[in-house]
Lab assay of single mutants.
Amino acid sequence: MDALKSAGRALIRSPSLAKQSWGGGGRHRKLPENWTDTRETLLEGMLFSLKYLGMTLVEQPKGEELSAAAIKRIVATAKASGKKLQKVTLKVSPRGIILTDNLTNQLIENVSIYRISYCTADKMHDKVFAYIAQSQHNQSLECHAFLCTKRKMAQAVTLTVAQAFKVAFEFWQVSKEEKEKRDKASQEGGDVLGARQDCTPPLKSLVATGNLLDLEETAKAPLSTVSANTTNMDEVPRPQALSGSSVVWELDDGLDEAFSRLAQSRTNPQVLDTGLTAQDMHYAQCLSPVDWDKPDSSGTEQDDLFSF
């Protein structure tokens, strides 16, 4: 819950932080000083300027060897085509990944977070970031790969997607708890209302004896509580940590079903599988986004697919 609360507080303090972009060759504004600060901008989305290598189908939802083989196929196909790589912007948030063309600003792909089953910074092609997700059109699994400016960037994108998945799962947990509370309150309110109706004398007997209905007592009954809980029953509950912020979080049926399955089948359902080692994760978390744009010590960066 700490990640969720800190993310909400950060967004309320400075929503404009989320509009910064990394990996864009110096076009961005001043960047936060450390990885923790940038992680807090996830709610509205972190932007990464990358190059799209392509996509291939895979048979399993996750796995280092599986993704490595898929990336190898994608890279080989991209090299064989001889075409310049498409420059894209990857927007990562707890909602998922939005992929747009840098030149036309046209939407290429919009992947809900619950469809993503794996992401990684490839070991062999260490400047490549990739994720595996279920197609929104059918049940097939797709591996999408992107060329980053350097290994640090690939690791940073991988960690960002993993963190977005974690925050999304926490949102789901909060929403589920809130819905259970509202359902319980609604049920209790309905029981109270039913009890009051059972003990209320029939209207005919009131008229016969000349008694008047006590409207004041009726007004004191917990009807307002019942209506408050039943009027918006169809509205999706939102985490309290975000009250007053500009973010509107809505959970669709697909996300609810997917996270429910994860909660039942996995020990740590909030953790998205990645190909990063503990050492890689520690190294990337210690980086400032400013470091992502620094040239690798191995030599001059080449803006070309064939540089790796």
Rank of each mutant, 00 (worst) to 15 (best):
V207L: 12
S288P: 00
A133E: 12
D183W: 06
A164M: 01
E40H: 12
T41K: 11
V271I: 08
E170R: 09
T56L: 12
V248N: 04
L203R: 04
V111P: 13
G254M: 03
M233S: 07
A10G: 08
K152M: 11
S16P: 09
F169V: 13
P201S: 04
T218L: 14
K176N: 07
G194C: 13
N211H: 05
Q60S: 11
S6G: 15
T300S: 06
V271D: 07
H144L: 14
A10W: 01
V111A: 14
L255Q: 08
H125N: 10
K19R: 11
Q270N: 11
L43N: 15
G8K: 12
S93Y: 15
L90V: 15
A221Y: 08
H125G: 14
F165W: 15
V75Y: 09
V111L: 14
A10P: 09
E235V: 09
V88S: 14
T104A: 07
P61Q: 13
T218Y: 03
K62S: 06
L147Q: 04
T38H: 02
K123D: 08
I12D: 08
S227A: 07
Q240G: 03
Q173W: 09
K19P: 12
M46V: 15
A284H: 00
E178Y: 05
R73W: 13
Y131G: 13
I98W: 00
S243W: 14
Q136Y: 06
F306A: 00
M233W: 03
L103M: 11
A219M: 01
Q86T: 04
L47H: 13
T77K: 15
C143W: 15
G26S: 14
K179H: 15
I132Q: 09
D303Q: 05
S175R: 02
R39T: 08
T277K: 04
S298H: 06
S224R: 00
L53F: 12
S49E: 07
P239A: 08
Q86A: 01
A162N: 01
A18K: 08
Q136G: 14
T38I: 08
I113E: 10
V192M: 04
S117G: 06
S93V: 06
P61E: 06
Q106E: 08
F259I: 02
A208G: 07
S81H: 11
N34S: 13
E216C: 05
Q270C: 00
M55L: 12
Q197S: 11
S246E: 07
R115V: 12
A208R: 04
E188H: 05
N268A: 01
L47G: 09
F129D: 11
A3M: 12
E170M: 11
A7I: 11
L223V: 12
L50Y: 04
L43P: 05
Q20K: 04
R261K: 00
S260F: 02
V290W: 07
Q240E: 05
F48G: 13
E64G: 13
H28P: 12
S140M: 13
W22N: 04
W292S: 00
E33A: 14
R13K: 12
G244I: 04
L57E: 03
A258R: 00
D198F: 12
L213V: 12
G244N: 02
D296G: 00
K166D: 01
M281N: 04
L215M: 04
C199D: 03
A156E: 06
E142L: 14
R95F: 07
E109G: 12
L57S: 03
T274Y: 03
C286Y: 14
D273E: 13
K87C: 10
T277M: 02
V58E: 10
D234F: 06
G194F: 04
A164C: 06
A145I: 14
D304T: 08
D126R: 07
G26W: 14
F165M: 01
N211R: 12
I98Y: 07
Q302I: 14
E44T: 15
G244A: 05
K5V: 09
S186Y: 01
Q270I: 08
K176L: 03
A121G: 11
C148E: 04
K166E: 14
H282V: 08
G244P: 05
L42E: 10
N232I: 08
T120Q: 05
L206G: 09
P15K: 03
P201F: 02
G244C: 12
K51P: 04
K30E: 14
K179I: 10
W172D: 01
Q187W: 05
W22D: 10
L255A: 00
D37P: 10
V111N: 11
S49D: 04
Q197N: 04
K72R: 03
A130I: 12
K83D: 07
L159M: 10
I113G: 00
Q86G: 10
G54Y: 05
S117R: 11
W249P: 12
K84Y: 14
E257H: 10
G54L: 03
F129N: 15
G63M: 12
K166Q: 13
G189M: 01
R13H: 13
I97Y: 06
G25W: 00
G194E: 05
K30H: 08
S21A: 07
G25I: 07
N138A: 15
L213K: 11
A18F: 06
E257L: 02
H28C: 14
V128K: 13
L53S: 07
R29D: 06
L17T: 15
K204A: 07
E188Y: 05
K179R: 11
A69T: 13
I113M: 09
A154C: 04
H282Q: 03
